[in-house]
């Protein structure tokens, strides 16, 4: 039985404790100077690595804030860009463009990524060569440079078979293809992490494979799948290269629409401002970075909140 009351330390117990401590020290002996130096040095090296990584990131952030701080105002968010009035120019079409594109990306990657992961984990027979080929290629696709996806988007989505033109929807499809491997790989990991005992328990109750999948496996793997989606969105928001290939270069001064007309996105707009010689535009670009980080943070915290709601343990 555990009692909450602490046993009072009489002289005798104190002596016994001291004796036990003395005994344990003599049994285990002292560590050598080399061991002690190692146990200090190794964490120090690790800490240094972490510090270097964080310093790069932090200096970028600090620089953006210092440069962009004077321009952090409502105009930045609500005004259209302008080449004439850098003091009041903003990012409105670019923010909207990014939000549209990312919304499209989410709509595409969640069903496609989860569907592909379910097929590969639950239904695909790994003995078959085509399933192994698919697996191998998904891993390879995750490492393909994004500009290649830009060329793909230009050839097959903007022009070619789909022929959608230079619109935000084309950008959504292209970026979705770009980040799909990330989502598939993360979703597969999440599905695989559901213990077999959960599946067995469900099947043993007379549930079908589909019921087991939809009511046990998928709910249990939702946090992991959402993590993959978060990573994918984070990457998609920052991508500029493929967007340059598929038409986001237009200097858009009006609100974009998803299915027609020119559009731009935050990273492209930032680039657009940053390449101008005037100091004001550079500051505007720095402020734009802060806006982009804020959008990223906002979307990610929503996804994290969603993930925590589904977080489960077994």
């Amino acid at each position: 039985m555990v009692t909450n009351e602490k046993t009072p330390r009489t002289g005798r117990t104190r002596l016994a404790v001291a004796g036990a401590r003395a005994g344990s020290v003599s049994v285990f002996g002292k560590s050598s100077p080399g061991e002690r130096a190692g146990s200090v040095l190794f964490p120090a090296v690790l800490l240094l690595a972490l510090t270097l990584a964080l310093t790069g990131l932090a200096s970028l952030l600090v620089w953006s804030f210092v440069k962009g701080y004077p321009r952090l105002d409502a105009n930045l968010i609500f005004n259209a860009p302008s080449t004439l009035f850098p003091a009041t120019a903003g990012f409105r079409p670019a923010i909207l463009g990014t939000l549209y594109i990312i919304a499209g990306v989410i709509v595409l990657i969640v069903p496609l990524g989860v569907g592909a992961a379910i097929y590969l984990e639950e239904y695909a027979n790994r003995e078959r060569w085509y399933n192994r080929l698919i697996e191998l290629n998904i891993q390879n696709l995750a490492g393909v440079p994004s500009i290649v996806f830009g060329i793909l988007g230009l050839a097959f989505i903007v022009r070619g078979p789909l022929d959608l033109g230079f619109i935000a929807a084309s950008a959504s499809i292209t970026l979705a293809l770009l980040v799909l491997p990330t989502v598939i790989l993360a979703a597969r990991e999440a599905i695989r992490a559901v213990p077999p005992s959960i599946r067995e328990g469900s099947l043993a109750l007379g549930a079908t494979q589909w019921q087991t999948l939809s009511r046990q496996v998928l709910p249990a793997s939702t946090p992991g799948i959402l993590t993959g989606v978060i990573l994918a969105i984070s990457r998609a928001i920052g991508e500029a290269a493929p967007l340059l290939m598929i038409g986001a270069v237009t200097f858009v001064m009006f609100d974009p629409s998803f299915f027609s007309g020119g559009y731009t996105a935050l990273p492209v707009q930032i680039y657009n401002y940053a390449v101008r010689p005037q100091e004001e535009f550079r500051n505007l670009a720095a402020a734009g970075i802060i806006v982009m980080l804020a959008v990223l943070l906002l979307m990610n915290s929503f996804a994290v909140w969603l993930r925590n709601r589904y977080e489960q343990r077994w």
């Binding site: 213990p195 005992s197 959960i198 067995e200 328990g201 469900s202 043993a204 109750l205 007379g206 046990q216 709910p219 249990a220 489960q312 343990r313 077994w314």
Partner: peptide, 13 residues
């Protein structure tokens, strides 16, 4: 018709 209980308790999460 034929239920099963396993070695390690495996309640659903």
């Amino acid at each position: 018709l034929i239920g099963m209980v396993f070695q390690k308790p495996n309640p659903f999460p």
